[in-house]
Computed example of a mutant assay.
Amino acid sequence: MALVAFASAKGSPGVTTAGLVLGALWPRQVLLAECDPSGSDVAIRMTAPGGAPLNSDRGLVSLAAASRKGLGDEVILAHSQQLDGGLDVLLGVRSPEQIGGMGGLWHPLGISFNQMQAADVLADCGRVSATAPQLPVIHSARLIVMVCTATGSSVAHLRERLSSLVHHVDAQLGVVVVADPKQRDAVKQVWTVLDQMSVPVRHRWHLAYDPVGAAFFDGRGHGRLEKTQLIRSATDIAAEMSALVATPHDFDMAQAAFPGQGER
């Protein structure tokens, strides 16, 4: 299937929330992998089915210890957990200090994520810089999605990071702007900035900044999640992203080559 990497160039524009909500709406089997070296947010925010706490010792660190057996689907999934609601997640490190024990896992992990047969993988890579340890995961992705806000500072850092990434990846590039649905003009200004760059960012999405909807992915939600602006905006984004990375065997190649031949 395919690896989609989400990252930001600065601050906290909502990468984890974007990963959680898009994973919840993904139309195929999916695994959310926390690859942010700053530490796991999901273990703090979310619970296992029935409200039980997640096991913070089971995830990326335990996978690193078991990686000598290989990083096939079964090994990766054996270290994942299910969130209340059904989304499978591979928890990240508890603290940045644990990154030192990861060794050379990042490169084979990125390749294995992108080659999983059981599920697509959405990797929450957090803030990315030129020296970020999780860069090999980003470089292995089929689609790299940079998440930003519509502020000048966020867009400036986005431009810098995209200009650096484009020389090191062979992947489709996309940008998600997290902004109030009423800030359409500000979002259009971000698209204008991207149009003026030489970096080919073909895929662009506007994810609603919606504290009411985001609260559901922080363990504080009340009311009807499906009615929130966050879910309404994320539903189409999840469908579009999943279609972009769909593998060839998701299609009938004979039908694509000879349309109409089977419709008799």
Rank of each mutant, 00 (worst) to 15 (best):
R94Q: 12
E97D: 08
S80H: 04
Y209M: 06
G152Q: 05
V201A: 12
A18N: 06
H139G: 06
D210Y: 02
A132E: 02
E263S: 14
I237T: 02
P181S: 10
G72I: 03
V137R: 05
F217I: 09
T47I: 03
V4C: 14
A130N: 08
P136Y: 06
S112R: 11
P27E: 08
S153E: 13
L165D: 00
A64M: 10
E34I: 02
V89W: 02
W106S: 04
L135K: 04
A239M: 15
Q29P: 09
L173F: 06
M253S: 14
T16S: 02
N55M: 11
S38F: 15
L225T: 01
I144A: 01
G39H: 06
A9F: 04
A66F: 04
W191F: 05
C148E: 03
L162M: 10
V212F: 13
K10Q: 13
L194E: 11
M241E: 12
V175K: 02
V121W: 15
S140P: 00
Q189N: 15
P49I: 08
E240H: 15
Q261A: 11
S40K: 05
G72M: 10
A171S: 10
A119H: 07
H79D: 07
P211W: 00
S38E: 13
L32I: 05
L91P: 00
V61W: 04
A208M: 08
F217E: 01
Q81I: 06
M1P: 08
G86C: 01
Q115M: 04
M241Q: 15
P248L: 15
P136S: 06
D218M: 05
